[in-house]
Write a protein that binds this DNA or RNA. Structure first.
Lengths: 169, 169
DNA sequence: TGGAAATAGTTTCAAATGTAACTATTTTTA
DNA sequence: TAAAAATAGTTACATTTGAAACTATTTCCA
């Protein structure tokens, strides 16, 4: 897939010449965000496919690993993954089918289900995490600590702006 | 949809305690990026739905408007939208079906097709753009010009890092 | 200059994801 | 405490999107 941002930038410049009032730098910023996201998503899905995983299944395994007592509800996972509960049901089906996760009814609250890592799921995620971390370090290797901090701050500020904006309208 | 980033941050913290070697700040940054993207995408699709549009159809109309002589090929559009040609075929079908775009064979190169705005498509996009621009200004209203510039720089640097990284692996 | 390769667009099929409706259970509240 | 509301998970259905295969045309190059 061709990710040539210049197509967009040229278009934006042309419209700006035709119609007054465009906040050009911010329009470019929003669109640039899409481009970077697509690239980020692509790159990590590509890496994870080596292990038979994708972004969702990888993060699901990691979230179960991180959870207290190695147990996690589908609803919790849905929030962490920003995915619908429908999708998490399916994801859990797949992970159970692959033998990485077990699904048990919860005794405390019989509406709930508990997802746990099987030994093979645990082994897999413990093997994959260091590889992915190393690649994340590579990806960010040109950034100084100050740049990392500033990027984090700007992203959180952007998130705040979007949430506030959504509320308002 | 619950966009509580703390679910993820807590999980990350827990794993970091169990397994050494996590570049925690960068892992958080990558994930934060997903969250912000989802929110951005949601918010603008919501705004555009008021006009019977979504991100893709809006950008398609804008790109045709911006193009020389009001003509654009599906392939060009595919690159600008970061969407497959398959998807652009369908998008063009929809836009033609809505009466906003016309599709004509290109006389120079008979493999090609030319998409143009109809009068009603032109009217629509000229009406929508100022509204969207105003909302983009609102969205970014808490950011100083320096922050905008820095954010732009960091995003482009991140894109470079990802592309270089993809090549390398 | 004629065959191979590339390009443009479409169609078919498959994968990923979400909404709404539904069942079962728990919590709230009047 | 009994009815109403909320919550958890699943299923049925719909939407969005892309990869691969295909046709038609143009470009490349031996």
């Amino acid at each position: 897939m061709n990710l040539d941002f210049t197509y967009f930038e040229n278009g934006i410049g042309s419209i700006s010449g035709q119609l007054p009032g465009m906040p050009q730098d911010r329009v470019v910023l929003n669109r640039l965000f899409f481009y970077v996201f697509k690239e980020l998503d692509d790159v990590y899905n590509q890496h994870l496919s080596e292990f038979g995983l994708n972004s969702s299944s990888f993060l699901a395994l990691a979230m179960i690993l991180s959870s207290e007592d190695n147990r996690l509800n589908p609803s919790h996972l849905s929030a962490a993954l920003i995915a619908s509960r429908t999708n998490v049901t399916r994801l859990a089906d797949d992970l159970v089918g692959s033998g990485w996760v077990s699904r048990k009814p919860c005794t405390q609250d019989r509406r709930r289900v508990e997802l746990s890592l099987t030994p093979s799921g645990r082994k897999l995620i413990l093997a994959v995490l260091p590889v992915i971390w190393q690649r994340i370090e590579q990806q960010w290797s040109d950034f100084s600590p100050a740049e990392i901090t500033e990027f984090d701050r700007l992203l959180r500020k952007m998130l705040e702006g979007l949430r506030h904006f959504r509320m308002a309208s």
